[in-house]
Nucleic acid binder design. Structure first.
Lengths: 136, 136
DNA sequence: TACAAAGTCTACTTATTTGATGGACAAAGC
DNA sequence: GCTTTGTCCATCAAATAAGTAGACTTTGTA
């Protein structure tokens, strides 16, 4: 299961995707529409900005907006920024790899299985973008 | 990422799958071979027994063994017992469903995406069994 | 130039989960 | 009856999750 933080972040991005091209959107606006605690949302959006997913503008008329077109921002990228590894174990993670202490990956059955689930998930997350998060 | 508990549980099952048909296996034996803290492993094996994945025998010559043939125990079943939901969000979980407060699932873009990743993962975990966890 | 409207940053807090450990108890075999 | 083995109970430290408070900075505009 993903954290509330990731869930909120994805929801916020879905909303911003729907508002793309219409100028900056207030944090308060996103928070209200998506029912997210505003102070919590602040930290999430800031993190997304620091990772170049979002841009912002301060002062009156300010707010947050996507740094790129919605269809160019893959869910895998976002997921990794907020939640971290997509893989179920460090020893099968592409972006957060860590060697499995006490286990030889070459002949580890669990390693083999976790690669399969990782690839299944990645296939979806690579292909889908924040554009797909827009509500109907 | 899955917890150490799930990781240990799956490793232990992989080992028991390799020993299937050879009689009860000592907790201490599994712990040593798979480098798992023995007391921690005890609680995991007990939980798997209480969920009918394993059977045990007390006293001399005792130990743990699979309740069924390795190929009959799917990874999805085991995962749900130790780790819990396979889905990334409660609102897309088949076995641990919980309604998403403040969100209409019918038109939720995130819900739609999480169903896709859930199905991708499930497809692997349903098909694969503890037999596939046996090391080379 | 001053004010108000935004985002930014630092620092907490509180509850829950994770990853264990220690020791008494119960059953089974010799 | 003694040893071997699993079972159960209680506890614990550290990490993480989820959220809150408040001061600060930047920017537009009157």
């Amino acid at each position: 299961m993903i954290s509330k933080k990731t869930q909120y972040g994805l929801k916020a991005l879905g909303y911003l995707a729907g508002q793309y091209g219409k100028g900056p959107v207030l944090i308060a606006d996103i928070a209200k529409k998506k029912k997210i605690p505003i102070k919590f949302l602040e930290t999430i959006l800031l993190q997304l900005k620091q990772n170049n997913i979002l841009e912002s503008k301060k002062g009156k008329g300010g707010g947050y907006f996507l740094a790129e077109a919605p269809k160019k921002i893959s869910l895998a990228t976002v997921y990794r920024i907020i939640e971290g590894p997509i893989a179920m174990l460090p020893c099968v993670s592409l972006n957060f790899y860590a060697k499995c202490k006490d286990c030889n990956e070459k002949n580890c059955g669990l390693n083999r299985m976790m690669i399969l689930t990782r690839d299944a998930t990645l296939k979806v997350l690579y292909k889908k973008t924040v554009y797909d998060l827009i509500d109907n």
